[in-house]
């Protein structure tokens, strides 16, 4: 976030500081009560041995890192981590590639281009439960339209959501669909910032469209691309709704990621294990923050450049 400070803003005075912080007081209190405190409770959950009863009475025994040890030793840990990586990397690769292709396609105005570009935002704006349940029905083994289309071209039906070989790919497909609009819009606005004179010069030098893309567009778009991918990474790591609604992480953990595993541990069973659930959640936070900090660093460097 670049904040341009005009030189003519009044100097910092003591009374000015009071006023400034009075206006900030609500948000500071808000952050303390509704961000810091829940996060603290989450860390506490992960370090104690909570049950539903001790939750209410507040006398859960201290367990140290036992919950973390339990999580690391769990048979679900390795697959959940692997699925998180596959889900994130494959989603990002396709979202970005398709988004970039579409951004280039839309970058030259044609009739209806603005309207169509707006329509492309729809998947991003729909509630995730709407998208996820629509995809669930489209990918239904017996009655889904996707299998109907496959049989039309002579391919056999696929058990998209019920086969362990396919469920992860099913949720990835849905997630790519949801993420394309974000990539398209951001990359499109990045393209608009490239002066057309650069293209004209390249065209004069005899560069064809393909060369223009790889020699001009792509390098000049690198900063925006980096930001798009990093932000996408942070967002994708925490995707939970789509997977939970479509497959609940199943069958037999085949599409379980760290986010859905954490939810299942804490809320998905009749006997919740809050401690391990919170421990998985905290691992996820650490991952998100590492990439989040990289994102902020890159963005600041660009803003300064």
């Amino acid at each position: 976030m670049s904040m341009s400070r005009a030189t003519r803003t009044p100097a910092r005075t003591r009374s000015g500081q009071w006023a400034a912080w009075a206006f900030l007081a609500p948000v500071v209190l808000y952050l303390l009560i509704f961000y810091a405190y829940p996060l603290y409770r989450n860390v506490e959950l992960s370090l104690r041995n909570y049950t539903v009863r001790s939750f209410v009475q507040g006398d859960a025994p201290f367990a140290g890192f036992a919950n973390y040890a339990k999580v690391f030793a769990d048979a679900t840990f390795a697959p959940a981590l692997w699925h998180t990586i596959v889900f994130t990397v494959v989603s990002l690769a396709f979202q970005f590639t398709i988004g970039l292709a579409l951004a280039v396609f839309f970058s030259r105005n044609f009739r209806l281009s603005a309207t169509l570009r707006a329509l492309f935002l729809v998947p991003w704006l729909l509630p995730l439960i709407v998208s996820a349940s629509t995809w669930s029905w489209m990918l239904n083994s017996e009655s889904g339209v996707v299998n109907a289309a496959l049989s039309w071209v002579g391919a056999g039906p696929v058990n998209w959501l019920t086969s362990p070989d396919w469920s992860l790919w099913s949720v990835i497909i849905a997630n790519i669909w949801i993420g394309i609009p974000f990539n398209l819009v951001v990359l499109y606005s990045g393209l608009q910032a490239i002066p057309s004179a650069v293209y004209e010069a390249a065209a004069l030098d005899g560069a064809g469209p393909w060369q223009r893309f790889w020699r001009v567009t792509f390098p000049l778009l690198r900063p925006v691309s980096a930001i798009t991918l990093l932000l996408g990474l942070v967002y994708t790591l925490k995707v939970f709704d789509i997977i939970w609604i479509m497959t609940k992480g199943g069958p037999s953990d085949a599409s379980t990621t760290l986010a859905t595993w954490s939810y299942r541990l804490g809320f998905g069973n009749l006997l919740p294990s809050f401690g391990p659930g919170a421990a998985v959640g905290n691992l996820l936070i650490v991952m998100a923050l590492v990439f989040g900090l990289v994102y902020i660093r890159v963005q600041r460097r660009q803003a300064a450049a």
């Binding site: 400070r5 400034a20 500071v28 952050l31 829940p38 925490k238 996820l284």
Partner: peptide, 30 residues
């Protein structure tokens, strides 16, 4: 209003945006 420490606050807000909702949910639940 140029509050002293405003930059830190903006930074905290950027970070806050990245915390997965599922983790906030667990803390809120408690």
């Amino acid at each position: 209003l140029r509050p002293r420490g405003g930059g830190v606050l903006s930074f905290v807000l950027l970070i806050a945006q990245m915390i997965p909702g599922i983790i906030m949910a667990m803390g809120f639940y408690a």
